[in-house]
Nucleic acid binder design. Sequence first.
DNA 1: TATGTAAATGAAAGTCATTTTCATTATCTC
DNA 2: GAGATAATGAAAATGACTTTCATTTACATA
Lengths: 154, 154
Amino acid sequence: MPRSRAPSEPRLEGRLRRLRTAGHRITAQRKAVLRALAGMGCACGAEDIHARARRIYPRLGLVTVYRTLGALVREGLAQTVQLDDGRIRYELRDDGRHHHHLVCLSCGAIARLETCAVGPLQQAGRRRGFTVTAHRLELFGYCGDCRSLEREAR
Amino acid sequence: MPRSRAPSEPRLEGRLRRLRTAGHRITAQRKAVLRALAGMGCACGAEDIHARARRIYPRLGLVTVYRTLGALVREGLAQTVQLDDGRIRYELRDDGRHHHHLVCLSCGAIARLETCAVGPLQQAGRRRGFTVTAHRLELFGYCGDCRSLEREAR
DNA sequence: TATGTAAATGAAAGTCATTTTCATTATCTC
DNA sequence: GAGATAATGAAAATGACTTTCATTTACATA
C-alpha cells in the first residue's frame, strides 16, 4: 500500500505550472527550492532555504536559490519579510491571503497574523497625494515560550 | 541688526545637552551631523547626511556619521526607517510623537503619517501569546509628483 | 589654565548578504 | 534530435555597514 502523498505536493504541481506559464523553465533546482520553502515552518532566509533544499538536490548553489526566490517573488508565488536586522526572509504565499508577522525578539520565531488594519492609513496617504501600492507591517515582541523562560531565569 | 536665529538652533542645544548627559562628548563632527539631520526634509540615508554635514565640517568621515547616527538612535534622539530593500534611513525625533511613513518607490521621498492603527493587531498578537513591544509599519507607493511625471511620460 | 585619560575620529581593511559575470549545462520548442 | 536560449554554479563584484588601530580631541581634575 503506497504512503499517502505529502499534502503540499499537489500545490507544488500548481506552482510549477504557474512558473512555466510565466515563461520560466522547470529545473530540479527550482523544484528543490519550492519544496524546501513549502517545508519551512515560517519565513526564512536564503541560507536556511539553501540548506534545506540541498537535502533534496545536494549540488544546488546558493546563487540559484537567490535567483529562484527572486523569480518566485516576481511571479507572486512568494513574498518577503523584512526583519530588524536588514536580512530578507522569504515565505510562500500559500493562499494569497494578506497577513502580517509577529516576530519574537528572543528566539526569532515568526508567526502569521491574519488581521490587517491599514485601511485608515492608506486613506491618510491618499489625502497626502500618495498612491499606496503596498505596505509592510511587522510586530516585534516576545512569544509565550520565551516569556516563560525569562520568568524562570529570574 | 542681527538676523533672527534659525528655529532649530535652540533644539540643537537641547539635543547636545542630552547627548552629554548620556555620557557622550560634544564634537564639531557631532554638531555637524545633528545640524545636517535637522536640515533634511525627510528621513535620509547615511550618505546623504554625510554629504550635507560635510558642508558644515568638510573633513567629516562617513564612519563618524554612522557612529553618530547609531548613538543618536541609541539615545532616542533619532530613529530609523527601513526601506524595502533593507537600507536604513534616519530621522530626528522632533517631538517623539509616534508616526509611520509613506515611502515613494520612485523618488525615495518619505512623508510622515501621524495616524496609527495597530491597536487591534497588538490585541490579536496577545491572543496568540505574544507580548508586543514594538512595531514597524511602512506604506509604499508613489507620491503626487512622481505620479504626474509618470502620466507625462506616457 | 595645564594635563591625563578615555572617548572620538578617520582611513583602510573587513563583513556579510546579495548580485553580477561568464563559461558550461540543461530545458523545451520545433 | 537539434538548436536556441534560459538556467546554473563558481568566483568575483557590490554596497551598505562595521571594525581596527593609530592619532586626535574633549573635558574632568589638578
